[in-house]
Amino acid sequence: MIVMPEIAAPALSVLDLVPVRTGQTSAQAVAASLALARRADELGFRRYWFAEHHNMPSVASTSPPVLIAAAAGVTGRIRVGSGGVMLPNHSPLIVAEQFAALSALAPGRIDLGIGRAPGSDPVITQLLRRSGTTSDVERFPEHVTDIISLASPQGATVRFVSGGEYAVHATPNATDVPEVWLLGSSDYSAQLAAQLGLPYVFANHFAGDGLERAMALYRSGFQATEERPAPRSFITANVIVAPTAEEARERALPQARQFARMRTNKPMTPLPTVEEAIAEPTDALEQSMIDQTTQRWFIGTADEVATTLREFAAKHEVDEVMISPVAGSYEREGLDSPAGRLQTLELLAAALR
């Protein structure tokens, strides 16, 4: 009998949007996420990243640098970072200063994931870019390289038309720099990461289409540098793990309903509890959206999800998967507890050891 070798387990990381459920305050949501970050550190997860989203009733991750500092303070080993900073909303110098300060707070543990999406609706985007200095999306590649230069120990030099020069440093005497990653779900981001010789993350947790093409473009076009001689990448994924498949499916429903509401242009609400999500009537269009959405998620028992995640990582040739633990909460579970998200991390980490 031929015995097939076991597929290697990928390293695990976490992407956190700091979900806000019915009746929960922002303070309780943040407390729950910090408890989750602390436990991820204890379980051996590689990274813990915070997303940037604005004006969403179910998401409290509006300011990644603030949350990263808080997470760094309650952890001791895990890398903490942004997944990501939406660069068109911010001045490159401000981003460089923030992450240079974070690198001084937690040397060797800071990741700067950068994206070019707005992270919100058109009205909020206008408010974020009211000054007019950060809204030129066409200058995104230039702004990325500016941040890398500004945060480096050497700093950057501003050259004037008259011939003069002006030295700029994100922090006075850096001994450590954040690791910069480009995030995206399109050919553009993959090609830019390759061109700049940067590591790349495909945002599979919300956009599964185009994954194979983006990864192929990144790897084939990668421009090696002395600092980064080979391409590095990982993929995000929505994951719910529970003791039974039935519970996992129930815990998937609150977030799946949010995706359906968003895609059918219904008003957004705090994340419903599992009981609320089960009780809410569903029309044919919403059910179709829910089915399509969850089809790409990893939902089930620890052994089931561990097996499919191993296969997923092997298929796409990555040694790391960043999970977004989107398990909803039952009404009985504490408002300052990560509940189902914590269960997902603990069960999956044990299964992949």
Rank of each mutant, 00 (worst) to 15 (best):
S186H: 00
F298Q: 13
V18G: 04
M86P: 06
G210R: 00
F202P: 00
F160A: 13
P272Q: 14
T157H: 02
M56C: 11
A96P: 10
A237N: 05
A279T: 11
A29S: 10
R257N: 10
M262N: 12
E52S: 09
D291R: 13
L342E: 14
A302Q: 11
R213F: 01
F99E: 14
G208I: 07
R47N: 11
T269P: 03
A151E: 04
V20Y: 06
Q98M: 12
A260R: 00
D291S: 15
S58R: 10
S63Y: 02
A170C: 07
G23R: 01
E304L: 08
L43G: 02
G23Q: 06
A151T: 09
P254Y: 14
A37G: 03
F222G: 03
A106S: 08
A306I: 04
L183F: 02
L217Q: 03
G132Q: 10
Q223H: 15
D136K: 10
F222T: 06
R129P: 01
G210C: 00
A96M: 08
P153L: 03
V274K: 01
Q295G: 11
G340R: 01
T125F: 11
M56T: 13
P267R: 14
S63H: 06
A194N: 01
Q295H: 15
Q98I: 05
P338Y: 02
G300S: 11
A35H: 09
H53V: 05
P107T: 12
A32K: 03
N89Q: 14
A256N: 14
D111F: 03
A151V: 13
P5R: 14
T301L: 10
S149T: 08
P57K: 09
I323H: 01
A313H: 06
T171M: 14
S189D: 06
A252L: 09
T134G: 05
L345I: 06
R130N: 08
T301S: 14
G113R: 05
A256D: 14
A230N: 11
A9V: 12
V74R: 02
I7Y: 06
R79I: 03
A314C: 08
L34N: 00
A349D: 09
D187A: 15
P281L: 14
T175D: 13
R249N: 11
F234H: 15
H90A: 06
S13E: 04
A248C: 12
G76L: 04
V3D: 13
